[in-house]
Amino acid sequence: MKTSPIAIFKEKRPVIISGPCSAETEEQVLETCTTIAKSGKVDILRAGIWKPRTRPNSFEGVGVEGLQWLKKAKEATGLPTAVEVANFNHVFEALKHGVDILWVGARTTVNPFSVQEIADALKGTDATVMIKNPVHADIELWTGALERLHGAGITKLGLIHRGFAQYGNSVYRNDPKWQLAIEMKRRFPEIPMVCDPSHICGKRDLLHAVSQQALDMDFDGLMLESHIDPSNALSDKDQQLTPKDLEIIIDNLVVRRPNISDEDLSQKLSMLRSQIDLIDDDLIKLLGERMKVAEEIGLVKREKGITILQTNRWEEIIEKASETGKLQGLSKNFMIRYLNAIHQESIEHQNEVMNRTELEKE
């Protein structure tokens, strides 16, 4: 390999990581990897060697034997390789077999003990490590995992956004919660961020839209699972692409510039952004005024012995605001999230003023 894996992200955008969800057989790994490599559109090969499954008796990966197959794929294509590791032994075996990139999976990132075990195993190495977001929406766990690895002397680091577990029906397998990935990009702008649309979507027909959205938000790369025969895959068959379909998705992505060089365009965007800033200032002032009114309501409730939470009133607000928002082109889901945030802040303000009144009485 002519360049270090992490350096690829400085040379190309987007970097495409692809390969089977799970290594199943030597033939499957080699055929999938050599086929997608021939397209010239894939930069890094991936394959699951150890598969953490929710329930026992599911396919949990072929283990160390699969590393030999991935090594052969690397030799055949000249492309670097990446696998998920979850403990000390995984790290040892992956590095022993020449794997170029290790990634920490979502189920591991959620456990600081496991992350620390991996960090300790990597001390003294020059490994490249990418960290997936934790399975649930906790940005501090994601940050903490990054800090633990950096504390072990690992400097070639990357982040993978694969969405977050959710309850109830949704179009996505894992909720993207884009704002959390954007916050990690804000905190660590120098660290490459890759989106994993396969795990966000859980099904093929959404992959292009999510991939495009990630690129529009200036993600550095995409991790898209591919399989020579997805319908017969031993894991996650609905989200894996054939090599041909992978090529079609990549060809149809629009890669926009993260920076502006055209002076007229820059001036126009600057003007529009100034308008956004003014509107945001007005919104913040209005929210401040709203909280002052909420505090007055809290005092009235305190004097009359009324509970802070009035369920019927809250349902009326949601219904009315959702209809008003619809007229302004705002989705109901956004309005509910927005109103919930305001409602929680209002309750806290009312609690604070009621408690303060009690203290003043004492």
Rank of each mutant, 00 (worst) to 15 (best):
T242R: 04
V194F: 01
R256C: 02
L246S: 11
E183Q: 14
C201T: 12
R187Q: 10
L253E: 10
M184R: 04
F164V: 06
S226C: 14
P243T: 10
F219S: 06
V210H: 06
V171G: 00
D196G: 10
W178C: 00
M184N: 02
Y167M: 05
L180R: 01
L180P: 02
S235F: 01
D218N: 15
P230I: 09
P176N: 06
K177H: 12
L246N: 11
D245W: 01
S231E: 15
H161N: 04
L253D: 10
D220G: 13
D205N: 15
K237W: 08
L222K: 07
S231T: 12
L253T: 10
D218W: 14
D236Q: 08
P243Y: 09
D218C: 11
L241K: 12
S235P: 00
D229R: 07
R162V: 01
D175L: 15
D251S: 15
P258E: 09
L234P: 00
N252V: 03
S226P: 02
L253V: 09
L234Y: 05
Y167P: 00
I248Q: 08
A214L: 11
N232G: 13
H161K: 03
E247F: 02
R187D: 02
Q166M: 14
A181T: 03
M223A: 13
F219R: 05
P258L: 02
F188S: 01
M193Q: 09
V171F: 05
I248H: 06
C195W: 01
P230A: 11
E247I: 01
A214V: 10
S211L: 04
L224S: 06
E190L: 00
Q179S: 12
H227A: 05
K185V: 03
P230M: 09
Q166V: 09
I182L: 15
W178V: 13
E247P: 00
R187N: 02
V194W: 00
H161C: 02
D220K: 05
D245R: 10
D236E: 08
S235H: 09
H199P: 03
F188G: 01
C201V: 07
G221Y: 07
V171E: 13
I200M: 14
L215I: 06
F188K: 13
D251F: 02
P197Q: 08
R162N: 01
I182Y: 02
C201K: 06
V171M: 13
R186T: 12
L241V: 12
V254T: 15
L241A: 13
D196P: 11
Q213H: 12
H161P: 01
P243L: 11
N252F: 04
K185F: 02
V194H: 01
S170C: 09
I248E: 14
I191T: 07
F164K: 06
P243Q: 09
